[in-house]
Design a protein around this nucleic acid. Structure first.
Length: 272
DNA sequence: CTTGCATGTGCAT
DNA sequence: TGCACCTGCAAGT
């Protein structure tokens, strides 16, 4: 279940559970077996996240990082009483806790230089204090693709996925089809700052809640659907159901292979 | 039991 | 633009 907040939570949990400790590393499923053997028994130095990329550092000669991307269906479970069912690409454990990786898009050993290259090509991550939203804005201005499509582009805002893009556009009543090159600086600033808040909230709570604050006129309609995958949302996966603010049916359409959800009644603005 | 869908990405066409 | 990839889950038979 991976948008950026999930990956950042996992990095924090891994560091808390295993940081500066020797760990057992194995790959029951086999596809990471050689690398796991090399890391088995090493000290896990820590973990961090950039967008949807997770990096785990070990105190070994290069390559000293495990680079994980969960993709659409990957899962990393961390806990004390895990079942061990299913295919486990990577398991890290100490006497108390284990972390089990299932179905990742990638799981590979990388050098520090390769890790830097991933970070360099990534856009600003609203969850990282060093992020520069200006970098995302410049890329936005160079594209004629729709704002909605560009919000999923990890070089513009790393860690944003289908839920955050749909909800942040809804919260500011923004039309999804506005071309990136026509998004003005103020609108981008507002969207960016809202993503910073929403994503930090999601990291804390462990799910995506996009309820508007009490001051907004929409707040009186605060009964968003609780999506079992996401949290409290206004439009994500609510196709055909009445908009919680205006009552019009929420629309959906495939955009570059992903389903976009929006309310055509509310989202009629070009700028925030 | 089977089928289809899912918070993602990269490659081929 | 479409497809392959990896797995889990819910809905349908």
């Amino acid at each position: 279940m991976p948008e950026g907040h999930v990956i950042h939570r996992l990095a924090t949990q891994l560091t808390a559970a295993f940081g500066d400790e020797p760990v057992t590393v194995e790959s029951p499923q086999g596809r990471f077996a050689a690398e796991a053997g090399r890391l088995d028994g090493a000290v896990l130095a820590g973990a961090d996240a950039v967008g949807k990329h997770l990096f785990i550092e070990f105190d070994v000669p290069e390559p000293r990082w495990v680079h994980i991307h969960l993709g659409l269906i990957g899962k990393l479970r961390i806990g004390t009483g895990l079942s061990g069912e299913g295919e486990i690409r990577l398991r890290i454990r100490d006497g108390a806790t284990s972390a089990q990786l299932h179905g990742p898009q990638w799981c590979r050993a990388v050098t520090t230089a390769e890790r830097e290259a991933v970070i360099a090509t990534s856009g600003p991550d609203p969850l990282r204090p060093d992020a520069d939203p200006e970098v995302g804005f410049e890329r936005l201005l160079r594209s004629k693709k729709s704002f909605a499509a560009l919000l999923m582009d990890q070089r513009i805002a790393a860690g944003v996925g289908n839920i955050f893009r749909a909800e942040v556009l809804f919260r500011h009543r923004l039309r999804p089809t506005t071309p990136g090159c026509e998004v003005d600086r103020h609108t981008w600033q507002v969207v960016w700052e809202d993503l910073v808040g929403l994503m930090h909230g999601a990291v804390e709570v462990g799910r995506i809640d996009t309820v508007m604050d009490a001051h907004s006129p929409e707040a009186q309609h605060r009964a968003p659907r609780v999506d079992p995958h996401g949290g409290e949302v206004y439009v994500y996966r609510r196709a055909g159901q009445p908009c919680l603010v205006c009552g019009r049916a929420v629309r959906t359409a495939a955009l570059e292979g992903r389903n976009l959800y929006w309310c055509a009644g509310c989202q009629n603005r070009k700028r925030a």
